[in-house]
Simulated assay, not measured.
Amino acid sequence: MATMKSVQTGGVGRIEVVDVERPVPGPKDVLLKIRAGGICGTDVTFLHMGGMPARAHLGGDLVPIALGHEPAGEVVEAGADVTGLEVGDRVVVNPQDAPTGIIGCGGRHGALSEYLLIENAEVGRSVAVIPDTVPFEVASLNEPMAVSRHAVNRSEAGPDDKVVVFGAGPIGLGAAIWLKLRGVRHVVVVDVIPARLEKALAVGADAVINSAEEDVTARLTQLHGQSANALGQPRPGTDVFIDAAGAPAVFNTVVANAQWHARLVMVAVQKKGEIDLGGMLRSELTLVASQGYPSEIFEVTPELVEHHERFAKLISHRVPFADVHRAFELALTPGAAEKVVVTFDA
């Protein structure tokens, strides 16, 4: 039996690298050799939990999860019935298309493994082919950039809009890139970490605000002009807010600064907190939730390819699979890393 190494949860705050059986593709499947895989906030959440509650256990026992849902890899085997894919093709993956469960999120397979089985492989549905001009570690950003793209799509931001993105992590910075690529007039990124704000400017944000040191209201008014809410109270002229941070303080800041008919897109997982419904009413603030990527997973791929050098700036750490424990230590330490990508030998 051929085996491979795979990363799974190993208890609270820990991973384990285990030897598991290497998958064998069926007639409709392909086998990928993984060449790069990103670590996501969802992976960190699973580690904080120590696994995932098993449905079969009424007592709520935790079971290990095979981790990794941001892969880029190379086809090394293809089933006889597979069309449109050949050995040697470089691909990115739709982790939500796996019939045995979402890859890396409770499904049978995890992408932080030496090999990954793509069941019922179909170009444009489960995988997309990428050219060899794009480094695998940049290609692995396809999945999180689809999350960012969906948030921007949900915002309906247009060329004349003035937009603020809270949170300069990968999702927030990805949103800033997509906003500028679609020609949005002015994009501000807000965070509390200076290095992240520098990165925001490097990827194309028009301005940044350090909310730990600056008055957000005054700075937004300076950047976006003065407007008003439904009662005529002064507010910055910001049209769209995107929350990629998930902190209650962000929601409160948006409500306090929303002009009449402003929009707030909530893409970050929200922490518990009170909502000022009266403040929302006074601005007739539209709250839009953004979850995953219903149609964006491969919508983003051509532009990721075209602008891969710009997206490459989002990666702060490239860590070899042999040192994957260090990769997760970085991801688990607040402020230590922006985007960690695990790389695999050819």
Rank of each mutant, 00 (worst) to 15 (best):
61 D>M: 11
12 V>H: 09
344 F>E: 03
286 T>S: 15
17 V>P: 01
125 R>N: 13
164 V>K: 03
41 G>A: 08
105 C>M: 11
253 T>Q: 15
98 A>I: 03
172 G>A: 11
315 I>W: 01
278 G>W: 07
324 V>I: 12
26 G>C: 09
308 H>L: 02
209 I>A: 09
169 G>A: 02
50 G>L: 13
36 A>L: 10
165 V>A: 11
225 G>A: 06
87 V>Q: 08
33 K>M: 14
201 L>M: 13
332 L>S: 15
273 G>A: 10
325 H>C: 04
51 G>R: 07
194 P>I: 13
237 G>A: 09
110 G>H: 05
213 E>I: 00
61 D>C: 07
97 D>F: 11
29 D>H: 09
229 N>P: 02
23 P>S: 10
214 E>N: 12
346 A>N: 14
107 G>Q: 01
201 L>P: 00
63 V>I: 12
114 E>Y: 01
115 Y>S: 01
150 H>D: 07
27 P>D: 15
129 V>M: 07
183 G>Q: 07
106 G>S: 08
86 E>A: 14
81 D>P: 00
310 R>G: 00
60 G>W: 13
79 G>W: 06
320 P>K: 10
44 V>I: 15
61 D>I: 05
85 L>G: 04
163 V>L: 08
332 L>P: 01
298 F>W: 09
207 A>K: 11
105 C>Y: 01
130 I>S: 04
308 H>Q: 05
285 L>G: 06
292 G>L: 14
327 A>F: 08
320 P>R: 11
5 K>R: 15
1 M>K: 06
122 E>M: 13
338 E>I: 14
254 V>R: 04
17 V>L: 13
73 G>H: 02
171 I>D: 02
23 P>V: 12
312 A>Y: 01
125 R>H: 15
235 R>T: 02
284 E>N: 13
279 G>V: 01
99 P>R: 12
190 V>N: 02
228 A>V: 10
34 I>M: 13
11 G>Q: 11
123 V>R: 08
310 R>L: 15
87 V>F: 06
221 T>R: 14
40 C>R: 01
51 G>D: 02
331 A>T: 03
302 P>C: 10
330 L>M: 12
153 N>W: 03
119 E>V: 13
244 A>I: 02
44 V>Y: 11
72 A>N: 04
146 A>N: 08
236 P>I: 03
237 G>I: 00
93 V>I: 12
199 K>P: 00
328 F>M: 08
28 K>N: 15
68 G>I: 03
102 I>Q: 10
268 A>C: 11
257 N>I: 05
262 A>W: 00
74 E>W: 09
178 W>C: 07
194 P>L: 04
228 A>Y: 02
190 V>D: 02
201 L>V: 12
234 P>G: 03
282 R>D: 09
69 H>K: 01
20 V>Q: 14
20 V>F: 06
232 G>D: 03
260 W>Y: 14
64 P>V: 04
154 R>P: 00
126 S>I: 04
5 K>F: 07
137 E>Q: 12
266 M>T: 14
71 P>H: 09
130 I>A: 02
282 R>Q: 13
43 D>R: 08
268 A>I: 07
345 D>L: 06
232 G>E: 11
95 P>Q: 04
115 Y>M: 01
113 S>L: 02
277 L>D: 04
